[in-house]
């Protein structure tokens, strides 16, 4: 395998560069995936049947906490990649662990939020609106959960094998994924929660 030392490790082999480009293309598909969820959400947002509307169930505090946790985790994993490029394995691992902990915190708040909705009579089966709300948030949440395990595997690999072209490549791609989830959250935060709460 040819290694090009003029590039950061994650780009240093041809296969690494293919992986990164391929992952970007995958993110393009993910944009469309969430685009479709938003399409359906906007179409069904007013079709609440006998169930509650968004304005009735959304609460600002947990949403703000979730946003803050995810934004921070996105920042921290950026620092992790920066540390990786400096070759500082320990710092990198620390940042990655913090990222995942923040991700866990996010999931905790989200699950709690779902429980609250459930008790307020908004379940998956209540109306087209609640079905769509839970599906959109759930798809994002499932992505975060999957990302948590993926990140865990990468931490183990970096700890065991050190920062090599292969592990650097995987870590970088994971960071892309994590940032992307943050981007999706920004849109969920703005166009589902804030838009829903300010709707008259």
């Amino acid at each position: 395998m040819k290694v090009d030392h003029s590039q950061p490790l994650e780009y240093s082999t041809e296969q690494n560069r293919l992986n990164i480009l391929g992952f970007w293309v995958f993110l393009g598909a993910e944009i469309m995936l969430f685009g479709t969820l938003f399409t359906s959400y906007f179409t069904l947002v007013d079709r609440t049947g006998d169930g509650p509307t968004g304005a009735e169930i959304f609460e600002i505090f947990p949403v703000l906490m979730e946003t803050f946790l995810l934004l921070t985790s996105s920042f921290v994993i950026g620092l992790g990649i920066h540390a990786m490029r400096l070759g500082k394995k320990k710092a990198m691992l620390t940042f990655f662990v913090i990222t995942l902990l923040l991700g866990l915190g996010f999931l905790g708040f989200e699950i709690d939020e779902f429980m609250v909705y459930y008790h307020e009579g908004a379940t998956l089966q209540t109306s087209a609106f609640t079905s769509m709300l839970f599906t959109t948030l759930g798809t994002h949440g499932a992505h975060v959960t999957l990302g948590f395990f993926w990140g865990l595997f990468i931490i183990i690999q970096v700890a065991k094998r050190g920062i090599t072209p292969a592990t650097a490549n995987k870590s970088f791609i994971f960071s892309l994924y994590w940032h992307f989830l943050d981007v999706v959250w920004i849109f969920i935060f703005t166009f589902i929660y804030l838009e829903g709460m300010t709707r008259v």
Binding site: S40, T43, L44, G49, Q125, A128, S131
Partner: peptide, 20 residues
């Protein structure tokens, strides 16, 4: 799971399936 996306009641919208 008996969700209501395309159901005939509770705000479901059958044409959304056709659309997607």
């Amino acid at each position: 799971f008996e969700t209501k996306f395309f159901a005939m009641t509770d705000g479901g919208m059958d044409m959304l399936w056709a659309n997607l």
